[in-house]
């Protein structure tokens, strides 16, 4: 209804003479709207299409003029030959750091969010405001002191150092996201559990957190994706090549090595994007399902 009104305007009933004109103009509007959407989509997706297309071209076709959008001699050579063990190692590092950060930030965030949502704490709003504000804190400013600390603690060149870095920059969002979720969860479920004699810890871990699975998943994915993207910590807290996560590793070693080898670089880009793409595609449905259903069943 809304959309209909937006598009056409609910004009007074057209007279017979102008009915044809009216229909035609409606059709024209509809066609031009669709054309506009398709055009915007084409422009927006052009970089991605170009990345995929280049990655499947042999080097000779990469620089052809005019450019080929569909590779004439498609090959997967760029995906298989160039990148050796080092790339695998970067992937492994990024996965390990991403998973550990996701667990730590979501875990610590969920506990704090539950407390903030359910208990009348003094200064509750101030705490939430602080979390929100800390998102804007200059990360390099944090890193200077963290670097000095990590030197003392021997945490440079370790996964732990990176995990801590990635955790603290995502924790505020986790707390916000999860607190909003707990706010919507009916408190009666917990009250009933207390009446039945369940302890607070039991109620939280066995009843509340299982119901929060979709929100916990969303939070974990957010952390993992942020960690996957993060360049700065990998550059500063890691100096040995084999401990670098993907962004830092790529920018320190592959960029100069493969300068101008665009099909290889695009193949690399596709491979780096793929895990995030899969993550979103696979878990999109999990988010939506069973948020309230869980409460009823439980």
């Amino acid at each position: 209804m809304n959309a209909e009104a937006l598009r056409t305007g609910s004009k007074p009933l057209p007279r017979r003479r102008s009915e044809v004109v009216y229909r035609l103009s409606r059709l024209a509007t509809s066609i031009s709207l669709h054309a506009l959407v398709v055009a915007s989509l084409a422009i927006l997706l052009l970089p991605i299409v170009w990345m995929l297309s280049t990655s499947f071209k042999p080097l000779a076709d990469v620089f052809s003029y005019p450019p080929q959008f569909i590779p004439r001699n498609p090959t997967v050579e760029s995906y298989t030959t160039q990148f050796t063990g080092l790339l695998g190692r970067y992937f492994l590092n990024s996965v390990i750091v991403g998973l550990l950060s996701a667990i730590l930030a979501t875990g610590a965030g969920a506990l704090a969010a539950y407390g903030l949502s359910r208990y009348r704490l003094p200064g509750r709003n101030a705490i939430l405001m602080f979390f929100m504000a800390s998102l804007a804190f200059p990360i390099p400013l944090l890193m200077i002191s963290m670097y000095l600390m990590f030197v003392q603690l021997g945490l440079l060149n370790t996964y732990i150092g990176l995990v801590i870095g990635h955790t603290v920059i995502t924790l505020p969002v986790c707390v916000w996201l999860l607190k909003n979720f707990f706010d919507q969860l009916p408190v009666e479920v917990e009250e009933a559990a207390f009446v039945d004699g369940a302890s607070r810890a039991y109620t939280l871990f066995r009843i509340v957190l299982p119901m929060a699975r979709p929100a916990l998943g969303a939070s974990a994915i957010f952390v993992f994706v942020t960690s996957w993207n993060e360049l700065l910590f990998g550059l500063t807290f890691v100096s040995s090549t084999s401990m670098r996560p993907l962004p830092a590793g790529i920018s320190m070693s592959f960029l100069t090595e493969f300068e101008g080898a665009w099909s290889e670089m695009m193949a690399l880009s596709v491979m780096v994007s793929l895990p995030i793409f899969l993550l979103f595609t696979v878990f999109q449905r999990t988010f939506m399902s069973g948020v309230t259903a869980g409460a009823v069943k439980g």
Binding site: L45, I48, N229, L231, S269
Partner: peptide, 27 residues
């Protein structure tokens, strides 16, 4: 489809933009 843009990691955008905006052969 539009949402796929949000999935592209920053490091990939950096490399991809280098290619798109390449002086001689850039799209």
């Amino acid at each position: 489809a539009i949402f796929q843009v949000w999935v592209v990691p920053w490091i990939v955008i950096a490399i991809l933009w280098g290619w798109l905006f390449s002086q001689d052969y850039g799209l």
